[in-house]
């Protein structure tokens, strides 16, 4: 019964928050309307979200988001510097990252993370979902890059979404 009425417990507060940000007010009425929308929208869009998302270690997730924000800033400084130094000095390359994540959500989160961080854009996922091809702007040591991606981003995502 509980599963039927509240199919995605995490989506409701998220939608309420988005509604409050959108109307830019914190009045009681808007809060109530936001909660109503946050309850009804998951019910009506149930078909698009067949699997329930479960977060296993919230603290790891928080640390991951903080690391990610820090890395985004560093990534931007690095890319800006590379662009300013000129196109002659960059060494672009493709690297293949073998994936340990299995779920769709996990893989798309990892691909988005890679695209947001230092000089890398995820370019292609193999049809069997085992390898992600990543384009790097300036790659000197492909193995080190793959190891960094796996250690820094994939391990926390694995712990949060797919604990064994």
């Amino acid at each position: 019964m509980k599963r039927h009425l509240l199919p995605h417990p995490l989506l409701t507060p998220a939608l309420t928050l988005i509604w409050l940000l959108l109307v830019n007010s914190l009045s009681f009425g808007q809060l109530l309307l936001g909660l109503l929308l946050g309850w009804l929208i998951p019910l009506f869009t149930l078909r698009f979200w067949p699997n329930r998302v479960q977060v296993h270690k919230p603290l790891t997730l928080v640390r991951f988001v903080l690391v990610l924000l820090y890395d985004i800033v560093i990534a931007n400084l690095e890319v800006a510097w590379l662009i300013l130094r000129g196109p002659r000095r960059v060494h672009p390359g493709f690297v293949e990252v073998p994936l340990a994540l299995r779920s769709e959500l996990g893989i798309s989160l990892l691909a988005n993370t890679i695209s947001l961080t230092p000089g890398t854009v995820s370019a292609w996922l193999s049809p069997d979902r085992t390898t992600l091809v990543v384009h790097a702007l300036d790659v000197r040591d492909p193995e080190a890059l793959v190891a960094t991606i796996k250690r820094r981003y994939e391990t926390p995502l694995l712990e949060v979404l797919e604990p064994c």
Binding site: I72, L116, V121
Partner: peptide, 29 residues
């Protein structure tokens, strides 16, 4: 400045894959 650098990368770099990096990162920040 970051918006400008991102677009500068778009105009300046030499192949499509490297150009992709400028707008997606620098411009976002």
């Amino acid at each position: 400045l970051f918006t400008f650098i991102g677009s500068l990368g778009l105009a300046r770099l030499e192949d499509f894959y490297t150009r992709l990096h400028g707008p997606t990162k620098a411009t976002t920040l």
